[in-house]
Simulated assay, not measured.
Amino acid sequence: MSVFKLLVDSLPKSNAYPYGLTGGKMEILKGAGYQTIGAVADATDEQLYEIDGIGVKTVQRIRAVVNQAVWM
């Protein structure tokens, strides 16, 4: 799917993605090396928890917005 090639910057909180990510969370993901939606989708929850500033609620939000992007 081409959505997996899109940059993480494509997931901001908006009308299209009501469960989207804040700019700060997108920057944290990019800083940890997750540049694309596909890279985030492929990461395990445990890998995401290892990122400073990412906790249980944020992982749930990330999973929700990635799922939204895939189904849109």
Rank of each mutant, 00 (worst) to 15 (best):
Q47D: 10
A64G: 05
I28H: 07
L21N: 02
D42N: 15
L11A: 03
L6R: 08
A69H: 05
E46S: 13
V70E: 14
A41N: 11
Q47F: 04
Q68E: 11
P12C: 02
E27A: 15
L29G: 02
V3M: 04
D9I: 04
I28V: 14
L11R: 04
Y49I: 10
K5H: 10
V66E: 01
P12L: 01
V40P: 00
Y19K: 15
L6E: 09
T22A: 12
L7S: 11
G31W: 01
S2M: 07
S14K: 10
T36W: 01
V56C: 13
F4I: 12
T36E: 01
V59H: 10
Y19Q: 14
E50F: 08
L29D: 00
D9T: 09
G20K: 12
W71C: 15
G20C: 06
T44D: 04
L11H: 02
D52C: 09
L48V: 06
A43T: 04
M72I: 15
M72K: 11
R63S: 08
Y34K: 08
L21I: 06
Y19I: 10
S10G: 06
S2R: 03
V66S: 04
Q68R: 09
P18R: 12
F4D: 14
V66D: 01
T36A: 07
S2L: 07
G33Q: 02
I51S: 03
K13R: 13
G55T: 12
I37S: 04
K13V: 02
G33L: 02
M72L: 15
M26D: 00
G55Y: 12
L6G: 01
S2E: 11
A69S: 10
T44S: 13
M1P: 08
Q60M: 13
W71I: 15
A41H: 07
K30R: 11
R63H: 08
K5Q: 12
